[in-house]
């Protein structure tokens, strides 16, 4: 493959991890995470390149990547909102937060705004039930949310 999409930094990080595992296949999840951190999602070229690096067929990479919800197999917006709507969060008003975002952005759950700024997901339990409702904005947790706090957070984004 001539045009690599993954950076030197990616390969250096993987090189450091290699001695930690007895098989190269064990680097598949870490490499998918690292690739997504770089690109924002996992385009087919990245999956192919990861397959080449690990030494497995690209179909095997897709088989694994598609099993896990955190790997974005299609592009997401600059700000990726994942609102937990599992039991404890729903008991504390998570559905209102979801509806509020749908109205605010004019999109449904699973969609991205036309300007590619916001993607809205409903998420299964985030493990923050004691501070429900909770959501992730990209890699960060935001907890004890209500509509005012959510608006303040979203309106303050660049």
């Amino acid at each position: 493959m001539s045009n690599k999409v993954l950076s030197e930094k990616f390969y250096a990080a993987m090189k450091r991890l290699e001695p930690r595992y007895p098989t190269k296949l064990a680097l598949l999840l870490p490499s998918l995470h690292a690739a997504q951190d770089e690109i924002g999602w996992l385009p087919p070229e990245a999956l192919n390149e990861i397959g080449e690096y690990i030494g497995i067929h690209p179909a095997q990479v897709r088989e694994v990547a598609s099993f896990y919800t955190m790997y974005n197999l299609k592009p997401v917006g600059k700000y990726h909102l994942k609102i937990c709507t599992n039991a404890s969060c729903t008991l504390r008003g998570a559905e209102e937060l979801v509806h509020h975002c749908e109205n605010k952005f004019g999109i449904k759950v699973g969609e991205t705004t036309a300007d590619k700024r916001f993607t809205l997901y409903e998420e299964e339990c985030l493990g923050a039930c004691g501070t429900a409702p909770a959501m992730m904005l990209n890699n960060d947790y935001h907890e004890n949310l209500d509509i005012q706090k959510l608006d303040k957070l979203l309106d303050g984004l660049e």
């Binding site: 595992y21 064990a26 870490p30 896990y68 919800t69 955190m70 790997y71």
Partner: peptide, 8 residues
């Protein structure tokens, strides 16, 4: 080694 899952 810390090994991250990916949502499952």
């Amino acid at each position: 080694t810390v090994h991250r899952g990916a949502g499952a």
